[in-house]
Lab assay of single mutants.
Amino acid sequence: RTVKALYDYKAKRSDELSFCRGALIHNVSKEPGGWWKGDYGTRIQQYFPSNYVEDI
C-alpha cells in the first residue's frame, strides 16, 4: 500500500517520518490512534499522521 503526502511534515520524535508534500510513502500499515507506519527514503516503518496523506 502506498500513500501520497498532502502536506509537509517534520518529525517530532526519532520514530517518526519527515516528508514533504507530494512524497510517496510505501509499505503503509494502518495503526490505531491516527498514526500509521510506512517507508520513506532510508526510514523504514516509521510513524506518520494519517491525516497528512491520501491513498493513491
Rank of each mutant, 00 (worst) to 15 (best):
E54Q: 06
D39T: 06
D15R: 05
E54L: 05
Q46V: 03
Y52H: 09
R13Y: 11
S18W: 01
C20E: 15
S14A: 14
W36P: 05
Y9C: 15
G41S: 04
Y7H: 13
Q45D: 03
N27K: 04
G41T: 03
E16Y: 04
Y7N: 06
S50D: 05
R13P: 03
K12C: 03
A5T: 09
Y7T: 08
G34L: 12
G38C: 03
F48N: 05
I25S: 00
V53T: 10
Y7M: 12
R43T: 08
L17E: 02
F48V: 01
S18R: 01
K10I: 07
G34W: 05
L6V: 06
G41V: 01
L17A: 01
D39P: 02
G33I: 12
F48G: 02
S14T: 07
G34R: 12
Q46C: 10
A11W: 00
T42H: 15
P32S: 13
K4C: 12
L17I: 10
G22R: 02
T2G: 04
G33Y: 07
V53F: 02
D8F: 06
K30W: 07
P32V: 07
G33N: 11
D15I: 13
W36A: 09
L24K: 09
K30Y: 14
Y9E: 01
R43D: 08
S14R: 14
Q45L: 01
R1Y: 15
R43S: 09
V53K: 00
P32F: 08
G33S: 11
S14I: 14
K30H: 12
A23H: 05
S14C: 11
Y40I: 15
Y52G: 02
N51R: 12
Y9S: 01
I44C: 12
L6S: 08
K10L: 06
Y52Q: 08
D55S: 09
N27I: 03
L17G: 00
T42V: 10
D39M: 01
D15L: 06
N27L: 00
G34F: 06
K30N: 10
Y47C: 06
I25Y: 01
D55H: 09
C20S: 14
Y47L: 13
N51I: 06
R1C: 05
E54A: 11
D55V: 09
V28I: 06
A11S: 06
N27D: 11
R21N: 12
P32E: 15
R13M: 13
W35F: 14
K30L: 10
G22A: 04
V28L: 00
V53H: 00
K30V: 13
A5I: 01
Y9R: 03
G34D: 12
V28T: 05
K10H: 14
V53I: 04
I44R: 13
R43A: 14
S50R: 14
G41H: 10
Y52L: 14
S14P: 05
S14W: 07
W35Y: 14
D39Y: 07
Q45I: 03
D8E: 10
N51A: 13
L6K: 14
N51S: 15
Q45K: 05
G33P: 03
Q45G: 08
F48K: 02
L17R: 00
P32Y: 08
I44D: 04
C20L: 11
R13W: 02
Q45E: 02
I44A: 09
H26V: 13
P32A: 14
D39V: 01
W35M: 09
S50V: 07
G22D: 09
S18F: 01
W35H: 12
G22T: 01
L24T: 09
Y47W: 12
K10Q: 13
Y47D: 03
Y7W: 12
D8N: 12
G38T: 02
E16W: 00
S50L: 03
R21Y: 06
G38D: 03
G33V: 02
Y9P: 03
C20F: 10
S50A: 15
L24A: 03
Q46N: 11
R43M: 13
A11Q: 10
R21V: 11
D55Y: 07
F19P: 05
G41M: 08
K37F: 06
R13T: 06
Y47M: 06
K10C: 13
T2E: 08
D39I: 00
V53R: 02
Q46R: 10
Y47F: 13
K4V: 14
E16P: 00
R13C: 09
G33R: 05
P32G: 11
C20T: 13
K30F: 09
L17Q: 01
I25Q: 01
D55G: 07
Q45F: 00
C20R: 15
E16D: 02
R13L: 04
G33H: 08
P32T: 10
Y9W: 09
A11Y: 03
S18T: 10
A23V: 07
V53P: 00
T42N: 15
R21L: 02
S18L: 00
F48E: 00
S29P: 07
N27S: 05
V28D: 02
Y9K: 02
I44N: 09
G33K: 02
I44M: 14
K12V: 09
I44P: 02
G34H: 11
W36K: 03
Q46S: 14
L17Y: 05
D15Q: 09
Y52W: 07
N51W: 13
A5R: 01
A23N: 11
I25W: 03
K12G: 10
K37D: 05
G33L: 06
R43I: 06
A5E: 01
I44T: 15
F19G: 04
A23E: 13
R43G: 13
D55M: 15
G33D: 10
D15F: 11
Q45W: 01
H26G: 05
H26A: 11
F19M: 03
Y52V: 13
F19K: 04
R13D: 08
Q45H: 05
R13E: 07
D8K: 08
G33F: 09
F48H: 00
K12D: 09
V53G: 01
T42M: 13
S14M: 14
S14N: 07
E31T: 15
L6D: 04
I25T: 01
K4I: 14
G41C: 04
C20I: 09
D8A: 15
K10A: 07
S50W: 06
T2V: 14
L6C: 06
L24E: 12
S29K: 08
T2I: 11
T42P: 15
I44W: 06
H26N: 09
G38E: 04
G34A: 12
Y9D: 02
W36V: 00
D8W: 04
K4W: 06
Y52T: 14
A5L: 00
E16K: 02
K12N: 10
D15V: 13
A11L: 00
Y47E: 03
N27W: 00
G41P: 00
L24F: 08
V53C: 07
K4F: 06
G33Q: 04
A5W: 00
Y7I: 10
H26L: 12
R13K: 08
D8S: 12
R13F: 13
G22N: 06
L6A: 09
K4Y: 14
H26W: 12
G41E: 11
